[in-house]
Computed example of a mutant assay.
Amino acid sequence: MEVEQTGWPVEHSQALREFHARGMSYSEIARALNARFAAFYTRNAVLGRAKRMGFGDSDEKRAEKAMLERMLRERISRSGSSESRMSDTRPAGVILSEFRPPKLPRAKAEPAKLRCVEVSPRRLALIELERNDCRYPYGGDEEGEAITFCGHPRRKGSSYCGPHFHLTRAPVIALQRTVSTAPLKLVERNEIFQRATETHPHGTNEAQEAVQSCEGAQPAIA
């Protein structure tokens, strides 16, 4: 049996390295070495030999390291199982980003009806305008298009002529009012009731009957 200078046989050092790689504690390594080679190693002897071999650390650090490695393996296994479940629920080769909600058709807005005036603009340039000329602009909608002005005599108190003055104002909508005949009918009913009360002073039933008979005889007020 080949023996190293430290007194440890080569087979014992190789077994120590093997047990250490398995994550066994130094006490467990000492018992395993004693059982395999009928030796009498202690925990401290095994720890000292492991340090001289370059991989010796305390049992607490090795336990912490083993725990971290175990947690890492569990996390990898969980992520792998979740990815497998996701791959089972979608067709092969399909990317989730390709699933987009369908675009709903938008209702086309009707173009606004523009008001116009029955006036033929003179289309004067800005430097050609006189003091009393209409300043209503034309053109300039497209790039490079010159802006001209109406040039007709303007309305008093305004920068525009009469047609363009009304064009820049909101159209007036005539309001149609419905005249109610309810107040008139109420006044007539009160007058009839007073006359019936004077005719029948002993009770109101006869007066009410007289009012109803008069209402039935009168034509409806439009």
Rank of each mutant, 00 (worst) to 15 (best):
A38N: 07
C214I: 06
A66P: 00
E98V: 02
L126H: 13
E206C: 06
R189L: 01
H12T: 02
Q208S: 09
A39R: 10
S81A: 11
Y160D: 10
I127P: 00
T181H: 00
R122K: 15
R131A: 13
I95M: 05
S120W: 06
E145P: 01
G139E: 02
D59F: 07
Q212C: 12
G162A: 12
L175K: 14
G144W: 09
A170I: 04
E198M: 09
L184H: 08
H164G: 04
A39N: 02
R122T: 06
A50D: 08
S158A: 08
E209N: 12
Q14S: 04
A217I: 04
H166M: 10
A222E: 03
E28I: 04
N205C: 10
P171W: 03
H12Q: 08
S97E: 14
T199K: 15
K51L: 09
Y136H: 14
Q176T: 08
V117C: 10
R85Q: 10
A21F: 01
F19T: 00
P111M: 10
A38H: 09
S97F: 06
E188Q: 06
R73C: 01
P102F: 05
T42Q: 11
I192Q: 05
V10A: 06
C214E: 15
R17M: 03
P219Q: 07
A50P: 07
A112P: 05
P101D: 12
T181G: 00
R189W: 02
S120M: 11
E83K: 11
E98G: 04
H20D: 10
A15V: 00
L104T: 13
R78A: 15
L68N: 06
N44T: 08
A35P: 02
Q176K: 10
S84V: 07
G80P: 00
L124G: 01
E215W: 02
S84G: 07
S97A: 15
V211M: 13
S25T: 15
R122E: 07
R70K: 14
Q194V: 11
G140T: 05
R78I: 11
C214K: 12
C134E: 04
L96K: 08
C134V: 03
E143I: 05
G7E: 03
Q14P: 01
A21V: 02
G23F: 00
K51A: 12
R22H: 05
W8M: 00
A63C: 05
D141V: 07
S58Q: 05
H152W: 13
E110V: 15
D57G: 08
A63V: 06
H20N: 11
Q5K: 07
R115Q: 14
H200G: 00
P153I: 12
A222C: 04
V46L: 03
G54K: 05
V10E: 10
M53A: 13
A32I: 01
I173P: 01
E4Q: 12
L33F: 01
R155F: 15
